Amino acid sequence: MSSLPAGWYKDPADTSTQRYWDGEGWLGEAIPADAVPPDGPPAVKAEPPVPPAAPAPQPPQPQPYGSPPPGYPAQPTTPPAYGPPPGWGPQPGWGPQHPGAQAPPPGWQPPPPGWQQPPPGWQPQPGQPMHAYAYPMPQAMPHGLPLAGLGRRLTARLIDIAVVLALNVVVNGWFIYQYWQDFAPIFREYMRQVAAGNQNVTVEPTPRMQTLSIAILTVATLLWLLYEAPSIGARGQTLGKRAMGIKVFRVESTAPIGFGRAFTRWARLGMWTLFWWCGVGLIVQFFFSLSPLFDPRLRQAWHDKAAATVVVAVPPGAHPTVKAAPSGDLPGGSK
């Protein structure tokens, strides 16, 4: 029991207010400390009535067979008029057309499987296509660098061909001269027979010409290999690619591709030089040079696909900005 008599005192919890002390505890709500308190204790507020308890939930009653569930909206007594939506038109070959139906606009395509009708009032954003498959695919940027264009790649290849031809003049010059020594008399005799009106002119190469032709093609192929494979394996560039600002990278990393992959890349194209004598080699190499057109995503030529390489444009001072993950983290990569 407290010895403090009942009365109004400052609230110890908040001295800016005062409350009524009944000798055992504080009653009522606090009032400002400078307000004149009423005589006696504050009025006690009536407690709000207790709301009645909610009735216990009743188990669902079984519905007669064929009746709608509770809360189902009532259906109209007369069936609605069935028909196509406004502007609908059947496709050619669907059978008899609905009177007043309109043909679809040119280029109309049915929606893909799983497509859902948009909600009422939906409108596409300005400048956005209607369907997701109409969005343009982003351009691939291997290792953060743009892909090399076909024009730059062909120009680099022509520069490399000129360099290899110059090497052949130096290394293969003696074999070519010996071949011409045997070929020139045969060619002059052929032209003399044609000028004389002989329609059945036959030209037979000498055995030495056949040996020399094999030697010339073999040396030309080896010169091309020694010129391209080591430089691509170590630096990713030949003289032509360096001049055009393009470079060969691995698909999975920016490390040098190495001689093994460089040889694989060159062999798919360069080994056909051995078949120049029948014309097949030149035709195959021509299509190999145009094969980046068949891969719009990464512009990989067939020999790039064989070696898992990609050719990118390297502007002066540019460096790869994206480092590939280790081989063990690549999907399907080797450990």
Rank of each mutant, 00 (worst) to 15 (best):
P38M: 09
P51W: 02
M137I: 10
F287A: 07
T264F: 00
G258M: 10
A243H: 02
S334H: 13
L269A: 12
S67L: 01
T17I: 09
P68N: 05
R19L: 12
G317S: 12
H303T: 03
F187W: 14
T221N: 07
Q109V: 05
Q123A: 14
R265I: 07
P207C: 04
L147R: 07
Q128I: 02
G127A: 06
I186M: 13
Q91K: 12
R299H: 15
F286L: 11
P146Y: 03
W26R: 15
L282Y: 13
P106V: 06
D295W: 09
E252H: 07
Y177Q: 14
P146R: 12
P120S: 13
G270Q: 02
Q210W: 11
Q285Y: 06
L274F: 15
G149W: 11
P106Q: 07
F294C: 10
L167G: 02
Q75K: 14
T206I: 01
Y72M: 07
D304N: 13
R235Y: 11
Q285C: 05
W174A: 15
Q97P: 12
D160C: 00
Y9E: 07
K323V: 14
A196W: 07
G71M: 01
V201F: 01
V248G: 00
T206P: 00
A229H: 08
Y177I: 15
E29R: 13
V201K: 00
A56T: 15
S253C: 05
Y82T: 15
Y179P: 00
K247G: 06
R299N: 12
T155G: 12
G107D: 03
Q237L: 01
I257C: 01
Y133D: 12
L298H: 13
Y227E: 05
P92Y: 04
R268C: 08
Q18I: 14
P12C: 08
P52F: 04
P57R: 08
G281F: 00
G89P: 01
P5L: 13
G279P: 05
P69G: 06
P205I: 04
I159Y: 03
P86A: 10
Q109A: 00
A166V: 13
A234K: 05
P256E: 12
R250K: 11
V312M: 03
P142T: 06
F263A: 08
P105R: 02
P80F: 10
F175M: 02
G89I: 03
F275I: 05
A325E: 14
P230H: 00
P112E: 06
Q123M: 03
R242Y: 02
R299P: 09
L222W: 04
E47F: 06
I31W: 05
L290R: 06
L225T: 03
P37G: 13
S67C: 01
T221Q: 02
G87R: 02
G332W: 09
G66R: 10
Q285L: 02
P207R: 02
A318T: 03
G279I: 09
I214A: 08
A195I: 10
R242I: 00
G144T: 13
V169Q: 09
P41T: 06
W266E: 06
A6C: 11
P55A: 14
G87F: 05
A313K: 12
E29W: 08
K305R: 15
R299D: 08
M191W: 10
R297N: 09
E252S: 13
V284T: 09
P110D: 05
G144M: 12
A30M: 14
G173I: 15
G7T: 12
L222D: 07
N200Y: 14
E204R: 07
V171S: 04
A229T: 13
Q109H: 02
E228P: 00
H303W: 09
P138I: 06
K10F: 05
P112T: 08
